[in-house]
Design a protein around this nucleic acid. Structure first.
Lengths: 362, 362
DNA sequence: TTGAAAGCGGTACCAA
DNA sequence: TTGGTACCGCTTTCAA
């Protein structure tokens, strides 16, 4: 029956520090912020006393005085909407959670991952954003642009996929390796006979997409030696292309024992399977969740879907960006979320989520 | 390539409204807050103008002026520590996320769910908490106390389990029904031969525990008619008791085909299975995650564990409580999280989580 | 019923 | 290098 108490009975302010040291609050402020024109000795005394008294700056007062507006550019693709609309919703939710901070979000939508993004950023050269959220496609292509932005003092956070070895502050994604590995583990437990598996992805130059396949292949080799893997198909997030590719995949025999669709672009694939009447013979694991997918999972025609929690990703990404811009908090490492494994039994929770309050599930 | 803009170019303040109507800012404030001593006509004029100008109150200024301290009592059990310590960590994290609000957390720990909680609350009668977080055991037992607190103007939010039909503001839990159903679905896909399943829970008067078994039984009946269910065993969250019960469960033949441990108290059960050398013959699904469990999942001796996201629960619960206390935001419905299904392939993400930054996973 | 003004804590400017 | 002070927007008290 222990009792712990968080000790913040009487918030210490700069006046208290000033009084304790018999200096002015102006001096205290300068010392605390390492501004010019403070003697090293007083600076040291102030910092010591501040720590001693447990000084924590009053955020409300600061933002009241500064009353700055933070402008954030948000660059996401339009397709796949079921994913990126929720990502945008998460960003918006995070912005309103920061009380007393004036955040202006400017949403810029380009057609699809890696298509039209550079042009939009280029056109916004004079918008003077404080920070940018971006869903990057091919890192080699967008990397130089990110570095340029950073050199101009604009803080960049990547979402949904990453562009490592650039100047981006941080990245928030699903752990793509783990996503692929989960899909493989689920197949390995469900398919007992030998056969081959097919994968449909977006674009292998996108880090997130490539990593998923790596995780999938590695885990499969380890746990399901009876299942082989045919080369991945890239749909470039285009529904029509994905449909044609799925059809040609199903034209050959023997059929694959299972198909893993590693992006949200699974609708056309399911349509192809439906038309060929192969949904009951081929195990399917998809990615993310949209209304049409629900009945497939309910009926067991889709084994599972790996929900990438776009709302949560968007919220976290803006949180990281704002915390850094506001008080310089450095994120320790890129955030890698685990996807939700959506099965028949937990599906109802996710449909509620789609219908209404995304923050109730996260 | 649409462009949406959040329109907050030039924040309107009460001065602007006052100037526009040629009244004082005091009057504007009184009108906006429906305080006494404002003529209905001026009130109407102010409200109209405020809406017209798109007035949004400045929270920084308000909280600076009010500068109130919110005192929260947090009543959680000590056992099971692997769960409740993370729950406390989540609460603490949420409190520091509220910038510009002075939150004082007072942690009170009682031995175990439903044991010693009432006494602690009674002893705190004069603490004058603004709100309380509590992990309730038997709702019938603690319900009256919750209602008393509420009548004294103390806002109560339940965490980890619920006490419905009381005056609590809201509750944050894992969806217990879904948790049970997931366990059943996993068993139904893994165990193909007929047999019976055993369940070990905490206390069936605790809502969360009872609901898990209901979800488990219902889902089992639906999807796995070849698996029957023996009556649930209650361990009352005591390790020694759980061990003895597991041993007697394993003394009878035939052995159960699978065991579902629906609370975090699985360590003694695994110990019993280990000693009887039955870990490879009996499928086990556990709840939550602690260091010793890791190797069981890695080696496949435990099929899966359902991680109840205690950190996320704690954070969400305090968020709801503070939002209500600060600006009266009413939570729409109790929050029911989906548990994380921890398998071999996503386990590494969770061990990182245990090791370090719980907020990176949530 | 309304107006005027003090002050919350921190920042930044001007004066010393 | 320091001290003093005006001000951010809102709430609240005191006067009118």
């Amino acid at each position: 029956m222990t009792v712990q108490k968080v000790p913040n009975m009487k918030p210490v302010n700069i006046k208290d520090i000033a009084k304790a040291l018999d200096v002015s609050i102006g001096t205290v402020d300068r010392a605390l912020h390492g501004r010019s024109d403070v003697s090293p000795s007083t600076r040291a005394r102030v910092l010591k006393k501040a720590k001693e008294l447990g000084y924590r700056p009053n955020f409300a007062a600061r933002s009241l005085k500064l009353n700055r507006r933070i402008r954030i550019g948000v660059y996401f693709p339009t397709e796949i909407a079921s994913f990126f609309d929720l990502l945008r919703a998460g960003v918006t939710a995070a912005s309103s959670a920061f009380v007393g901070v004036n955040v202006e979000l400017v949403f810029r939508n380009f057609p699809r991952l890696g298509k039209g993004d550079l042009e939009l950023i280029e056109a916004d050269r004079n918008e003077h954003f404080d920070g940018i959220l971006i869903a990057p496609g091919n890192p080699d292509r967008i990397g130089p642009t990110i570095n340029q932005l950073v050199q101009h003092g604009i803080t960049v956070v990547c979402v949904a996929s990453d562009a490592p070895r650039t100047g981006r502050l941080s990245a928030v994604t699903v752990d793509a390796n783990v996503s692929g590995a989960i899909a493989a583990e689920l197949f390995s437990r469900t398919i007992s006979h030998s056969g081959h598996l097919a994968t449909i992805t977006g674009d292998l130059t996108t880090l997130d997409h490539a990593e998923k396949l790596k995780g999938f292949a590695a885990s499969l080799a380890l746990f399901a030696p009876h299942l082989s893997l045919v080369p991945a198909v890239e749909s470039h997030e285009k529904p029509t292309l994905a449909y044609r590719q799925a059809m040609s995949l199903l034209a050959r025999k023997p059929y694959p024992a299972g198909i893993y669709v590693s992006t949200a672009n699974s609708k056309p694939v399911l349509q192809a399977l439906e038309e060929k009447r192969l949904l009951n013979q081929i195990q399917v694991i998809t990615t993310d969740l949209y209304p049409e997918l629900v009945s497939y999972i309910e009926s067991g025609k889709v084994l599972a879907t790996l929900f990438q929690r776009p709302f949560t990703q968007g919220r976290k990404a803006l949180e990281i960006l704002l915390r850094y811009l506001i008080d310089g908090t450095q994120p320790v490492a890129p955030t890698r979320f685990t996807p939700h494994i959506v099965l028949r039994s937990n599906l109802p929770l996710f449909t509620d989520y789609l219908a209404g309050q995304p923050d109730s599930l996260s």
